[in-house]
Design a binder for these strands. Structure first.
Length: 889
RNA sequence: GCCCGGGUGGCGGAACAGGUAGACGCAACGGACUUAAAAUCCGUUAGAUUGAAAAAUCUGUGCCGGUUCAAAUCCGGCCCCGGGCACCA
């Protein structure tokens, strides 16, 4: 069934099709396009002929095209359609280039929405999830994606997640998993942990209660052990978008600086700074509310205790911490300056993050803007120790903002006169001699907390024994299976109340023990699923030899929202597996295409309790003022106002997804696919609008009718390029220019919108021509053959039928991509634009190979150009070959 | 608040390495076909000015400034929108 890639499909590959091969019985082609008939017939054929199954084979290059697996939220939305259509186009395009392609699909099936659905409707998350998968799988099939369904995985199945557990234990063996406390959002009313998404303005979304931060013991994966490698390896990812690499580099956030110890009665307070040159300007030290020094101070001082307590209110997200008002109190503790021995006060401040560096900073108000504002607010002193290399020296009394640039040191004793860089090195050296610090590199990246106090996730394979402590579940007892019949009610993890799950015996001492009831972060599931597609039927190993054939992924496609977390975790996980000898590569995704989000309006209401409810855009009516401007919206159900939340990503949680099914039912899959591709280039954000779907449908109908008219006019004769007249040559040139353009747009640029536009232009040119001569019809035969092949990756169903009508027995899916004939594209004369002083003043036609001088002379002779240069001296003539002439006067 | 993108006609977008701004499509308007409508086909469509017309000129790519023979594209500053910020996925 698989084509031998060494055989070209046509004897003369420059001329696309000479004579139909007669495989089709000559009957009249139907005049009108029936999308649903086409789609059903084509899908059945692909299935019947086994064209969707990928097999490991040695001949020909493999091409593994992967789309990020969907969360089974219930129905596909337009973001999915966009993602999977792009993937399908690239897969089919590569298949037509003779590659052995794999395009799998699966389900990111654990997660919060299943629990929310359970709370709302009382249905078990497992049941809800499996029903959703069944429905969405049907939707994906109806869109005609060339997916090898025999490799489907669902991350909520024990045969999948047992390998999460297995690898977790291997990481535990190697010290890459450890336990420590971490902060979570706590809803005091529901007595439950909330996700950051469920905290809105510091309140729980269901109860409206003010959220508190709580400390819980959790498992962490040591991604920081790979921080440096994950950062430096970005340079090698030539197939990744620059912006994604920049985001990851900033996220890892490597900083080279100096660690400084401030001695005090109870020991040494460590801080980290990238500006050790400003050390002599430090006038106080600030610590995070969770810092041991702050907690000690709180035990002695009621005011500090109250402040530390206040810091616990609100959520844990960085965005929330970073936008809150900067506040602090004196800890009532003092430290000594490591160089001057000066006594400096310690403050407890909410802007210091415990998770970064040492959870403490030296404050230099004259040279750090945040310290400056804090010092002004609390009347703390300010000392200028760096002046700009040129310009005025800032005066402490008159400063209106911190001077944060590098410069020359002043008021710094023996360091006076040194530049910032020299001073940093010298100060680091002195600290090192005094054993109070030295150079240090820190990362913004934190270890990956993987514990979730939730039911619908992969159980963490640990048993807690009073005698033996935390004991790993033995490999032979894996998987630890999650009971699928529990129904969360919003008050904590039902697993923690499930006696049948919790009770077990300690594998070490045999005494009764308790299972861990936390489950793993769902990012664990999605950190390696792309490996499992290669070998999902192996029940004795996580990966096998087939992984070495298919991986790494040649093309990965998914939303830009995953630019950091998912992609970084996957890169980390792959390295762990490499170091365990399970895979031979470090980077799982060779090429990455990050698709822009599909946005839609967000509407919501706050409930009486302070919670929030989202409404679908088709549940509301928009109101406009007399000038046609948007002026609010009301709910259809009760005609009362709803709040507008702006544009946002289509998602289950915001209730603003648009189900493509109605469009597929009405217009067919090809129209929906074509519309999504034509709407915008893939990387661009797309605000949802349905207008344009009709246009996509109209184009397919026009194409169908054009091919039908051509086919029904009877057999064609052999194309003889030498026998063509000028018009026929011009049309044929357009065919081959279009082949070049579309090949480049799909294969290199990924701009499917311009590829479609180019084919539309060619069809427009074709339908304007009424040349019925034998050679005229031969050119058209070549044109329709080319168009069918060029569109095949994008709208495969209609092309399957057109291909058959054009006389081919083999499926269009297995046909070879057309090659442009360079000879057909040659032009004799070209048109150039002529500018005078950069403004367009005329056009001239010249021979394609004309030299600069004759081009310039032709330009200067153009009548309108002469009008503008008359009576003025021509100072310069810029000739851009093939493009334009600019006359400067 | 921090990091990363984006902003072009009524709308989606095109202009790929600094060289014709508005390809292609939607919507709108006018016409053909039709008893009529739908569908289809043909035409017009950035704004302004001049002209009977052909055509020509001016302005114009979020805002302000700069570099260049030439800027949507490069540089500096600002505004707005979107994505991410570690428990949404």
């Amino acid at each position: 069934m698989v084509r031998d890639s060494s055989q070209p499909p046509f004897a003369n590959s420059h001329i696309l099709l000479l004579i139909p091969d007669g495989a089709k019985q000559r009957t009249t082609m139907q005049a009108s396009y029936d999308a649903h008939l086409c789609e059903q017939t084509a899908q059945q054929r692909w299935e019947r002929e086994g064209l969707l199954h990928a097999r490991e084979q040695s001949d020909g290059d493999k091409y593994y095209c992967l789309c990020m697996l969907p969360y089974p939220s219930g129905r596909l939305h337009m973001g999915h359609v966009r993602n999977y259509t792009i993937g399908d186009v690239l897969t089919r395009f590569q298949r037509m280039h003779g590659r052995n392609v794999l395009q799998p699909m699966g389900w990111d099936a654990f997660g919060l929405p299943a629990e929310n659905a359970a709370i709302k409707n009382g249905v078990a998350p497992a049941r809800w999830t499996y029903d959703n998968i069944a429905y969405m799988r049907r939707q994906l099939r109806s869109l005609g994606f060339a997916i090898d369904w025999s490799r489907e995985v669902a991350t909520c199945r024990p045969e999948y997640y047992r390998w999460n557990q297995w690898l977790f234990l291997r990481m535990l063996d190697r010290g890459l998993v450890y336990r420590k406390t971490g902060s979570v959002n706590w809803d005091p009313v529901d007595q439950t942990v909330l996700a950051n998404e469920q905290v809105i303005d510091g309140r729980g979304w269901r109860t409206g209660a003010t959220v508190e931060r709580r400390e819980l013991p959790m498992y962490y994966m040591k991604i920081t052990a790979y921080a440096d490698e994950l950062l430096t390896a970005l340079d090698g990812l030539a197939g990744w978008p620059e912006r994604v690499k920049t985001m990851q580099a900033n996220w890892i956030g490597r900083s080279e600086g100096v660690e400084i110890g401030f001695p005090h009665d109870g020991g040494v307070l460590k801080v980290f700074t990238t500006r050790a040159d400003t050390l002599l300007g430090a006038t106080y030290v600030a610590v995070a509310a969770e810092h041991p020094l702050a907690l000690q101070a709180a035990a002695r001082d009621a005011r500090v205790a109250a402040f530390v307590d206040a810091c616990r209110r609100g959520g844990v997200s960085e965005a929330e911490l970073a936008t809150q008002e900067k506040e602090g109190v004196p800890a009532g503790v003092f430290v000594r300056h490591p160089l001057t021995d000066e006594k400096l006060p310690v403050w407890v401040a909410n802007y210091v993050l415990m998770a970064y560096g040492e959870g403490a900073v030296m404050a230099v108000p004259a040279h750090d803007q945040r310290d400056f504002e804090f010092a002004r607010k609390h009347g703390l002193p300010l000392r200028v120790v760096v002046r700009p290399a040129a310009g005025e020296t800032p005066q402490a009394e008159t400063l209106t903002e911190a001077f944060t640039g590098d410069g020359v040191l002043i008021n710094s004793g023996r360091y006076d006169g040194l530049g910032s860089a020299q001073a940093m090195a010298a100060i680091a050296a002195e600290l090192h001699t005094r054993k109070l610090g030295g150079k240090r590199t820190v990362y913004r990246l934190r270890d990956w907390g993987v514990s979730r106090q939730r039911y619908w996730g992969c159980p963490i394979p640990i048993i807690h024994c009073d005698a033996c402590g935390d004991v790993p579940v033995p490999d032979e007892d894996l998987p630890v299976v999650l009971p699928e019949d529990l129904v969360p009610d919003g008050s904590g993890n039902p697993l923690a109340k499930c006696e049948a799950f919790i009770h077990c015996t300690c594998p070490r001492c045999g005494k009764p023990a308790r299972r861990e009831t936390d489950t793993l972060d769902t990012f664990v599931d999605s950190s390696w699923y792309y490996l499992r597609y290669a070998c999902r039927d192996n029940d004795t190993a996580m990966v096998d030899g087939r992984v070495h054939y298919w991986l790494p992924v040649d093309q990965y496609i998914g939303g830009i929202e995953h630019a950091i977390l998912h992609l970084l975790y996957s890169r980390f996980w792959t390295r762990v597996m490499r170091d365990l000898g399970l895979v031979k590569f470090a980077e799982p995704f060779t090429n990455l295409l990050t698709q822009g989000m599909v946005l839609n309006h967000i509407f919501f209401r706050k409930t009486a309790a302070g919670g929030i409810t989202y409404y679908s855009p088709d549940e509301v009516v928009l109101r406009h003022d007399e000038r046609g401007q948007f002026a609010g919206a009301t709910l259809k159900a009760d005609a009362r106002p709803v709040e507008y939340g702006g544009m946002g990503t289509m998602s289950k949680s915001k209730n603003n997804g648009v189900d493509p099914q109605a469009l597929v039912d009405k217009y067919g899959a090809d129209t929906v696919r074509l519309f999504m591709l034509f709407a915008a280039p893939p990387e661009q954000t797309l605000e949802w609008s349905e207008s344009g779907v009709e246009g996509a449908q109209r184009f397919l109908k026009r194409l169908w009718k054009a091919v039908a008219d051509h086919v029904n006019a009877g057999p064609v004769t052999l194309l003889e390029p030498a026998a063509l007249d000028a018009l026929q040559r011009a049309l044929r040139r357009r065919i081959h220019e279009t082949i070049t353009k579309v090949s480049d747009d799909i294969g290199r640029r990924y701009t499917f919108n311009t590829a479609v536009a180019a084919v539309m232009e060619l069809l427009n040119a074709l339908t304007r021509s009424d040349d019925a001569t034998p050679q005229g019809r031969a050119v058209k035969q070549e044109a329709y053959t080319a168009i069918t092949l060029l569109l095949c990756p994008m709208v495969p169903h209609i092309c399957e039928t057109l291909w058959r009508e054009l006389g081919h027995a083999e499926s269009a899916m297995m046909a070879r991509w057309p090659r442009a004939d360079a000879a057909a594209r040659v032009r004799e004369r070209i048109e150039l634009v002529v500018q005078v002083n950069g403004k367009l003043r005329g056009r001239v036609a010249v021979a394609a190979d004309a030299d600069r001088e004759s081009v310039a002379n032709a330009a200067l002779a153009e009548p309108n150009v002469r009008r503008f240069i008359e009576g003025r001296a021509v100072r310069k003539v810029v000739v851009v070959p093939g493009k334009l002439v600019n006359v400067v006067v």
